[in-house]
């Protein structure tokens, strides 16, 4: 007699915890053969709110971590991903991937994590500048994380389309609230489990699952979210997010990339979620009669 399988309930990930949705609603997803493969939280706007609160609470601390430390943590995420490689392959295949594609996706996910781990302490030098102003001032521009970012992950990808948006955000010191793919949500929560065992401070990444039609609005209009990132090509969704952004002048970044391409990762995705801060300070005795050169 065959053993009865335990169906996993995929809980959401907020502030380093795995709560059930406060809505008490769930939806099921099925594999290609119509077999139920999981219960997924149908998150509410209150879940989004809780996630934003968690992201805001931890933003200062994460942004202030040393770049080296952020790099170490991202590398640790890669290590933990590697350890769960088979689980991700399995989940990707349940959700319809071929084995080869699933293997490629997790490998690329791990490599991309290492790629952004390496950026953590390098992008600053490429994106910053010392500005040769005419007056007796030292003037420099540095980049700082934009803040709390809401991420609408790619609907057509369970893993790579999500992590390709999360990694540049957190490498750059932002914290984020992620809406996972509605139809391919499994990897998002497994990824959350990876994060939770990777030294990543609670609240840096928060992941909710649910209906896009319901959740795009709270993801896009929350006044304490500083930027929204979107992957995909749905013009209505993009327009909606841009409109919602107006209320507090959110930055909206949309990408329509093939995330399975090795090249779909770069410095400029980090830079998209950075603010440039320019600092001035007087310099005594420059160019004056009393210059001591």
């Amino acid at each position: 007699m065959s053993r009865l399988e335990i169906l996993k309930t995929y809980k959401i990930y907020i502030g380093g915890q795995f709560p059930r949705t406060e809505s008490g609603r769930y939806y099921q997803i099925q594999d290609g053969k119509g077999k139920v493969i999981g219960n997924i939280c149908m998150s509410s706007k209150k879940d989004v709110r809780n996630a934003v609160s968690a992201a805001r609470k931890t933003f200062g601390g994460w942004a202030e971590r040393s770049a080296f430390n952020r790099s170490q943590i991202l590398y640790r995420i890669a290590e933990m991903l590697e350890g769960r490689r088979d689980q991700f392959i399995n989940e990707l295949m349940i959700q319809g991937s071929s084995k080869a594609n699933a293997e490629k996706e997790i490998d690329l996910t791990i490599d991309r994590t290492v790629y952004y781990a390496g950026w953590c302490d390098k992008y600053q030098q490429l994106l910053s500048s010392v500005n040769p102003v005419s007056s007796a001032h030292f003037n420099f521009s540095v980049v700082e994380p934009t803040g709390v970012v809401s991420i609408i992950a790619d609907e057509n990808s369970s893993l790579i389309g999500m992590i390709s948006l999360i990694l540049p955000a957190i490498a750059g010191g932002n914290t984020c609230v992620v809406l996972a793919s509605e139809k391919l949500p499994l990897c998002s929560i497994t990824f959350a489990e990876v994060l939770n065992t990777s030294d990543l401070p609670a609240g840096v990444v928060n992941i909710v699952t649910g209906k896009r039609a319901e959740l795009i609005e709270p993801m896009g209009n929350h006044m304490d979210v500083n930027a929204t990132v979107y992957s995909g090509s749905n013009a209505d969704e993009i327009k909606k997010l841009k409109e919602l952004a107006v209320q507090n002048v959110k930055r909206v970044k949309t990408y329509n990339k093939k995330w399975m391409n090795e090249e779909s990762q770069d410095l400029y995705m980090i830079s998209d979620l950075q603010e440039v801060k320019t600092t001035w300070h007087p310099i005594e005795n420059i160019g004056g009669a009393t210059s001591s050169y």
């Binding site: 500048s129 500005n131 040769p132 102003v133 005419s134 007056s135 001032h137 003037n139 521009s141 934009t146 803040g147 500083n226 507090n248 002048v249 930055r251 603010e275 440039v276 801060k277 320019t278 600092t279 001035w280 300070h281 007087p282």
Partner: peptide, 27 residues
């Protein structure tokens, strides 16, 4: 959280110096 910070000076501008805001001050 501001795009330009003047330390021991204020309201200085220069073509080489990036200017612009955080949050509702624009992008």
């Amino acid at each position: 959280r501001a795009g330009v910070v003047w330390a021991n000076t204020y309201n200085k501008f220069d073509p080489t110096s990036p200017f612009g805001g955080y949050k509702e001050s624009g992008f």
